[in-house]
């Protein structure tokens, strides 16, 4: 019993310490956005890595998500005789919830893991020490381009996911199930308002901040992991970063739903 309390106590302290470190990290990153010189070239590189190269999986997963949604809603709505609502059912589910969440999960899996591992290896190879000794701010030089690229890319990827998903729903609804195409789109147009779209953009923006923050900070502080070092530490923080990003993202999703709906 005593050991349990001790364990809870010590892990709480560790968590609070980590939260403090991470908060300072985020503060440094945001502060460094406004410091010169601005790495435009690095931003483009990261936009390519985070945004452009995620497009294919976003389009694929968006298409399938939309198609699955259409199948599910078709079977439910036909039983209730309200199959006319198909367009708005698919569209609202995508734009409000599944678009931001699924796009974020895809990006976390692809970008969060590799960003965390890359930064952790940079730390292990003393690359941050080298930058500091060269009087180059590592936050500005390494973190800011990734941070900006993530918060630009994820909302755009979410929008692509939404559009492709709506199109996927159209394929299933209209070509496979024989609904009227104009009805599907008209219902969608009638039911979706600025609130839903704004929510989609805000959510994806928040998710982007959360995931890139956690992934970068986990890697940056790899040397704080107790009892592991080297390659083992890198693999450990990478796993932790992906899990923590996904959970924090879903938690933020719940919070934003309860605030915004």
């Amino acid at each position: 019993m005593f050991r349990l309390i001790k364990l809870i106590g010590s892990s709480t302290i560790l968590f609070v310490e980590e939260l403090g470190r991470f908060t300072d990290f985020l503060y440094q990153v945001i502060k460094s956005i406004f410091s010169r010189p601005f790495g435009g070239r690095d931003l483009i590189k990261q936009l390519e890595f985070i945004g452009a190269r995620s497009m294919s999986i976003i389009i694929l997963s968006g298409l399938f998500t939309g198609m699955v949604l259409a199948l599910l809603f078709y079977s439910v709505l036909t039983r209730l005789g309200s199959v006319d609502l198909m367009g708005s059912a698919v569209g609202l589910s995508l734009i409000q919830e599944l678009g931001p969440v699924m796009a974020a999960i895809m990006v976390i899996a692809r970008v969060g893991s590799s960003t965390c591992a890359e930064i952790a290896i940079m730390r292990n190879e003393q690359q941050f020490d080298a930058l500091t000794c060269m009087a180059v701010n590592p936050y500005r030089f390494v973190m800011v381009p990734r941070f900006l690229a993530a918060i630009i890319s994820v909302p755009l990827l979410t929008a692509i996911f939404n559009v492709v998903g709506i199109f996927g729903g159209y394929i299933v609804g209209v070509y496979l199930k024989g609904l009227s195409g104009t009805l599907y789109l008209q219902n969608l147009i009638d039911k979706i308002g600025w609130e839903e779209l704004r929510m989609s953009v805000i959510k994806s923006f928040v998710f982007a901040v959360i995931f890139i923050w956690i992934s970068m900070a986990k890697g940056f502080f790899v040397h704080f992991e107790k009892g592991v070092s080297g390659a083992e530490a890198v693999s450990l923080v990478t796993t932790k970063a992906v899990v923590a990003s996904a959970i924090a993202m879903l938690f933020a999703d719940y919070i934003s739903n309860s605030f915004l709906i």
Binding site: G51, P155, L156, N162
Partner: peptide, 21 residues
């Protein structure tokens, strides 16, 4: 590649805005 991504992403947003309005 980056330009293409930005164009596709922005046109997705524009499309959604049109659907909305």
């Amino acid at each position: 590649v980056v330009g293409l991504f930005l164009i596709v992403g922005l046109s997705a947003i524009v499309y959604l805005s049109v659907v909305v309005s």
